[in-house]
Design a protein around this nucleic acid. Structure first.
Lengths: 194, 194
DNA sequence: CACATAAAACCGACCAGACGGTATGGAGGG
DNA sequence: CCCTCCATACCGTCTGGTCGGTTTTATGTG
């Protein structure tokens, strides 16, 4: 990392604080104190508190997109692709638990041009998952008696809830949980369950 | 309602604002302005902003408990009881979407003796669901190859995510969604899927 | 290596405004 | 005359953000 030490530490501390407290309830003084720097130093690297928040979204969005693309371009039947996507997105969420918490919780606090962009990129992501499920329905592997919007909600709900219960110190390992949740999800949406 | 008009309106407005913005990002002034009252009037009925938040938790917790008890005491095989519980909790969540948002998001902002109490009552609720699932496993209807903690997380995730995607103005009705999500969930955890 | 210079990194004092909460007092009914 | 209900003005504190200035580092030159 030839990048600034200060910016990195502030970023790391900020996401942790935004996750445990809320964004609006976290003062920049708190952040810089926890990061061991001064406010002047922080405002040298970030234009506003909002930048800190947006930075989290940018990193997570590009990470998600990159992962999804890698998994998608391997190809294969929708059933197995969705399994890979599901496992990957759960494992990634576990790797970035605090980021995920902030991601889902604080979108409406972003300043306006940015919020719109995040919304757009999230919709892109949603649409790709939706297409994948649609393909699976066409291939006859997924049930068609439930609206796709509900299937997608069911997909994202597990991911979203992770940060509310999973702890790396708990009994289950990351890959175990990813396997199990994926299994539960796929068992639910497969055609034979219909 | 022989209760105060002011207190009711403030409560209603507060939960709406806490859900759309964050708790810490919502000022008392904003609340009373939106409710059409003055700060003096509000502080006549509530001791603090924290009271507003705690009130939401109290109402939701007792509502949840009451509903769960009603459903549980009807008895029957765990499989069908869990189905009833699941449908009921989803429908209730839809009836109280903003409350649910605040409920899951802002617990860590409660002042301390209260937060502990909320945590305790939530754990009670969790444990009763856990017992129900355990009974279903004993009766041979639910799969046993996945830790119960993961099954429970899978259960609550759908409920939790509702406020992030469901809209009463959307195409799906409340009872449809409840049926469908319950179906997806149960198809996942049933033994035959193992 | 010495030195000059410029740019980047950083500090800490300082705003103006908003915050949650309070103190005071008046209106109206019992 | 007191008590409930409510409005207004106000308080101390903390907020995100700015700014002038100082130190540190990088670069160029002989």
């Amino acid at each position: 990392m030839k990048n600034s030490n200060v910016a990195d530490r502030v970023t790391r501390v900020a996401v942790e604080l935004f996750a445990t407290q809320e964004f609006a309830n976290t003062s920049v003084l708190q952040i810089v104190a926890a990061a061991g720097v001064t406010k002047g130093a922080m405002y040298h690297y970030f234009q506003s508190k909002d930048d800190l928040l947006f930075g989290i979204y940018e990193r997570m969005l590009s990470l998600q997109r990159a992962h999804l693309e890698t998994t998608l371009e391997k190809g294969g039947p929708a059933d197995s692709v969705l399994r890979d996507v599901c496992i990957d997105v759960i494992e990634t969420s576990i790797d970035f638990l605090p980021e995920g918490t902030v991601f889902f919780r604080s979108m409406h606090l972003l300043s306006e041009p940015r919020r719109a962009e995040v919304t757009r990129r999230r919709r892109e992501y949603h649409d790709r998952i939706s297409s994948l499920i649609e393909r699976g329905q066409d291939e006859g592997s997924f049930r068609t008696d439930i609206p796709r919007s509900v299937l997608i909600a069911h997909f994202f709900s597990d991911v979203h809830y992770l940060s509310h219960w999973y702890s790396p110190d708990g009994p289950e390992t990351k890959s175990e949980v990813a396997q199990q949740l994926t299994d539960l999800f796929l068992s639910g949406i497969r055609k034979e369950a219909q």
